[in-house]
Amino acid sequence: MHKQRVGVLTFIVLAAGLLAFVALLPFPGTSRTCIQITMWTPIAASASTSLELLLRKKIWSGLSLLAAICVVVASVEFS
């Protein structure tokens, strides 16, 4: 049962990202923004999952995911 509860915030972030992508795509000149949204949404969703896991006292899995996000963001910034 905990899997369903932990995923609530992740679900909301993913849905918001997809909604933004679909809503912006029909407008001309928005391809870049749409693609940027789809690239950052999974990172934001992972951050949400991490937060949810930490709040549920699943410290190691939460911290592990947080470290993965840090690796991704650092590599994008310094590449």
Binding site: K58, W60, S64
Partner: peptide, 26 residues
């Protein structure tokens, strides 16, 4: 993103294991 929305709603995604596997993957 799209697939996860469906699977999360059904509660079949093992987020706990996924969190451990995500670091070496990243």
């Amino acid at each position: 993103m799209a697939g996860s929305l469906v699977y999360l709603r059904e509660g079949v995604t093992d987020l706990d294991s996924a969190s451990f596997l995500q670091l070496p993957t990243a």
